[in-house]
């Protein structure tokens, strides 16, 4: 555990909590892509199956359970409790164009051809692109609530911090996981355009709206 890893995890946790609280407090999931949230629930489910097979640490187990629990709670709020506020017409990204290629790739390129390892690889690849329905939705409506941009910033920051964590681990522990690193780079790059808008607009007190 190093500082980048810890702050990355906390940033990820902050993102998840911000989104849950935003929906709960406003009693609305307007502007939130339910498809991205389903993909994240799928990511955590397929990644944390090792909860059943190995114990790493209390921290590890607790965080995995919190992430999974919050992911399903978010999906529940969007598709059940506050379904009336869900903006399905704008959430029109075709997720099969992500899930099918990612599934194929995880079978082809993995560390070990075993069910658990393939599912873990699937989750890593899927996470890298799971935000696309949300970004697509924002590009379609041309705007995002400020609280939604804070969520996206924390979520993007988390994987960027993990990149520094992997550099750290490579130098000090000789550890590297090429699948996680390549997918993590892809994931972080997808947020770059958003990071730019966040810094130049949201941090200066303006609402995030895209030019027509």
């Amino acid at each position: 555990m190093n500082i980048f890893r810890l702050t990355g995890d906390l940033s990820h946790l902050a993102a998840i909590i911000i989104l849950l609280l935003k929906i709960w407090k406003s009693r609305s999931c307007a502007g939130i892509s339910g498809k991205s949230q389903i993909l994240f629930a799928l990511v955590f489910t397929t990644r944390y199956l090792d909860l059943f097979t190995s114990f790493i640490s209390l921290y590890n187990t607790c965080m995995k359970l919190i992430y999974i629990g919050c992911a399903y709670a978010t999906v529940y709020l969007i598709y059940a409790k506050f379904r009336a506020t869900y903006d399905g017409n704008h959430d029109s990204f075709r997720v099969e164009f992500l899930v099918v290629p990612v599934g194929g790739l995880s079978v082809l390129i993995n560390h070990d051809f075993s069910p658990l390892e393939i599912l873990w690889t699937f989750s890593i690849y899927l996470e890298s692109v799971a935000i696309l329905p949300q970004l697509f939705m924002i590009s379609k409506t041309g705007e995002a609530e400020t609280i939604t941009t804070h969520y996206l910033f924390c979520l993007g920051l988390y994987r960027a911090l993990y990149l520094f964590n992997w550099i750290w681990r490579f130098y000090f522990e000789g550890f590297f996981d090429m699948i996680a690193i390549v997918a993590g780079v892809v994931q972080t790059v997808l947020y770059c355009d958003f990071f730019y808008l966040y810094v130049t607009k949201v941090l200066k007190g303006k609402k995030l709206s895209l030019p027509a």
Partner: peptide, 10 residues
């Protein structure tokens, strides 16, 4: 480092 099996990263 070992990368398969239980993962310590989240």
């Amino acid at each position: 480092g070992r990368v398969t099996g239980g993962k310590d990263e989240l």
